[in-house]
Design a protein around this nucleic acid. Structure first.
Lengths: 125, 125
DNA sequence: TTACTTTTGCAATTCAGTTGCATTAAGAAA
DNA sequence: TTTCTTAATGCAACTGAATTGCAAAAGTAA
């Protein structure tokens, strides 16, 4: 799992998530931070923070990997199963603060769920 | 939107979905059909069948694009919102025949939802 | 058949994400 | 603080899913 050191780069990444409060794609983050750190570093920090349980990730309809802050998760316990909304107009993606009830599936062990809602945000509709 | 002609290649692709009855990743389909048609052709057929409403697609946790047959969808009306289960052991992905109730989101127009459940299938658990 | 449009194959390209390796910086211990 | 170990970083090269351009082939309607 590896210790996550609080380097400048790590703090910069975390600050970005604090500031936006929204989900951010890895690509967008690389672009946004291109002057302060390397692309590879961004990807590796995202990986580590996800392992640690600080962030969670999901695949957007656009094929990009998106990250958002976890609410009360750790590396062993992943309680975060809130839905995400992705606008098909502008691409903005946000976490929705509601819980998803995952139906039990016979003969399957469900670890966690990803609910992605596709539609139009207020600005785009 | 473009007419979809029932060419040999199109029928071959459709037959694959009929036979497996499961979701198939584009990559797996390309691999499976490599002797009968070109990679590009597979991707384009999948695109067309999705436009037409015959197939629906979703992004797997693995970053691959998965396709499955739609039940009662057309190009204008997408009623398919059943969940998919992806095994983190073997990667197999299946459609689950249950409906997801999409909660209404204030100020957002939700077109459709993708619910991806991650866990272990019967064989892998 | 003819005329027209869609579909296909192939090669080249794009681009998100990864890897290997040498260098740098955390941070614990002395 | 200085030393020492290990994690983190930068850079360049690479991987692989998916896309694009274009000429050739195959559908389809008349």
């Amino acid at each position: 799992m590896g210790v996550v050191r609080k380097t400048k780069s790590v703090m910069t990444v975390l600050n970005t998530f604090e500031q936006t409060g929204k989900a951010v794609s890895a690509v967008a983050l690389v672009e946004h931070l291109q002057d302060s750190m390397n692309k590879t570093t961004v990807y590796r920090i995202l990986d580590r923070l996800e392992d640690q349980g600080t962030l969670h990730s999901f695949m957007g309809k656009d094929g990009l990997k998106w990250y958002a802050k976890c609410d009360g998760c750790s590396s062993t316990h992943h309680i975060d199963s809130h839905p995400h909304f992705q606008c098909r107009g502008c691409g903005k993606t946000e976490c929705l603060s509601m819980d998803v009830t995952i139906p039990p599936i016979p003969k399957h062990k469900v670890d966690f769920a990803e609910l992605l809602l596709i539609g139009l945000c207020e600005t785009c509709s």
